[in-house]
Amino acid sequence: MGVLDLAKGMGVTLGKLFSKPLTVSYPESRVQLKPRFRGRHVLTRHPDTGLEKCIGCSLCAAACPSYAIYVEAAENDPAHPVSPGERYAKVYEINMLRCIFCGLCEEACPTGAIILGNEFEMADYRYGDFVYGKEDMLVGQYGSRPQRREAERQGTPVRLGLSVQPREELEGVRYP
């Protein structure tokens, strides 16, 4: 390694000193995520009928490597069906503390009902609050549980710290 190489190295660092930092000042400015970022799950609906895609088959729970998913199925009422099949998920819970966001549930799902979304800000205070139910994950629900709680307390709309173009599997999901 000659002296010229040393000088070249010094030049590189000096040049970088005057370049714009790549750091995103996260809480103030939004993180630009890639579309396939795997965050909080979304339970999607059929866009035309509005019925839930989930048929309560529990394949996601079987595929889950960390046993984070609990599904309890029930028969559909033929007059007012929740999902297009015979059964639907009466209870659908994911423990976000156990979940490793691997996406195997998404792969196992025969109807494409569960898709990993892009939200990731789920830090909370109590273990129980990390068990997300259907009401937290159905499409149209915006923000995680602590974010919605905080927004309600302050009377402001939920503000996500991310911006992304959601992939097409996430039907009906719009991020700012």
Binding site: T13, K16, L17
Partner: peptide, 10 residues
């Protein structure tokens, strides 16, 4: 600060 800026951080 300077080290950070040279490493393109803040």
């Amino acid at each position: 600060r300077l080290l950070a800026r040279m490493q393109i951080r803040r």
